[in-house]
């Protein structure tokens, strides 16, 4: 793989998201150093994207466009509110989140340096670490946006009677559609996952993805639908991998006001 170019089949499967295991790792290692195959992957991405055209076109309800254009109008008209009652609390949380990510990034950078010194043959581990660093750096950037915005809110999520011990906080900015979760809960059973939910003012809960039991020093940044007013956030115990809608008991809950 390092000398010859990648198999076009592999590029298609990678673009499709179907490649996994060693095949995926080998291709990613090759792509890292091969501009030609990066170009071929670009073409494969475009090609495989079009498979979705096999789904019959469906015209959305007119209300969807109306709501979209209303949001666009509102964004043009109204900048973010200037009042900032949460400034002090947000700053403290911002520092804490930033410290966690900064520390993680520094450790990963150091680990990468050490690996590079020790053994050039550990390219795969290096690549994984580099990807993690890049992800953390991007998460940090997103987190900075939330913590720096005057219209972000901090929501404390508290444990429920009879449930596992735990506590968490969510920094949420509805305008940006960004939430930052940090917290700690008693470990979940092996066949279960903790799942974070945004509970909107109306309608069904919206999944904000899975969270680890110990998310105390490594906050999670979640991208949600911008403009979604939250009534509360909650963590539930779900079957491994999570579910599209909550099915398990609420472990942590916090209202936005």
């Amino acid at each position: 793989m390092t000398s010859a170019h990648a198999n076009p089949d592999d590029l298609d499967l990678y673009a499709l998201g179907a490649l996994d295991g060693e095949d995926k790792q080998a291709l990613e290692s090759h792509l890292h150093a091969c501009p030609h195959c990066q170009q071929q992957l670009a073409a494969a991405r475009q090609r495989t994207a079009l498979v979705g055209l096999a789904a019959p076109a469906v015209t959305p309800r007119p209300q969807v466009k109306s709501a979209l254009m209303d949001k666009v109008q509102a964004e043009k008209r109204s900048p973010a509110p200037q009042s900032d009652p949460l400034k002090t609390r947000k700053k403290r949380w911002g520092l804490r989140f930033s410290f966690g990510f900064g520390l993680a990034t520094a450790l990963l950078a150091f680990a990468t340096y050490e690996l590079a010194k020790q053994d050039l043959g550990r390219g795969r581990q290096l690549k994984q670490l580099q990807a993690q660093i890049a992800q953390d750096a991007a998460a940090l950037q997103a987190m900075g946006q939330v913590t720096g915005a005057p219209d972000s809110a901090v929501i404390a999520l508290l444990q429920q009677p009879g449930g596992p011990q735990g506590q968490a906080h969510v920094l949420y900015n509805a305008r940006m559609g960004l939430a930052v979760y940090s917290g700690q809960i008693a470990p979940a059973p092996a066949d279960k996952s903790y799942q974070l939910w945004l509970v909107p003012a109306s309608g069904s809960p919206v999944s904000a993805g899975l969270v680890d039991a110990n998310q105390q020093n490594g906050a999670v940044v979640v991208r949600l639908t911008p403009g979604l007013a939250a009534k509360a956030f909650a963590v539930t115990l779900e079957p491994l991998g999570g579910r599209p809608q909550p099915t398990g008991p609420m472990v942590l809950v916090g209202a936005t006001s």
């Binding site: 992800q135 998460a139 993805g209 899975l210 940044v221 991208r223 991998g241 999570g242």
Partner: peptide, 11 residues
């Protein structure tokens, strides 16, 4: 959204 995964979309 379907699979409760963030890895594809978050950043």
């Amino acid at each position: 959204r379907l699979r409760g995964r963030r890895d594809r979309e978050v950043l």
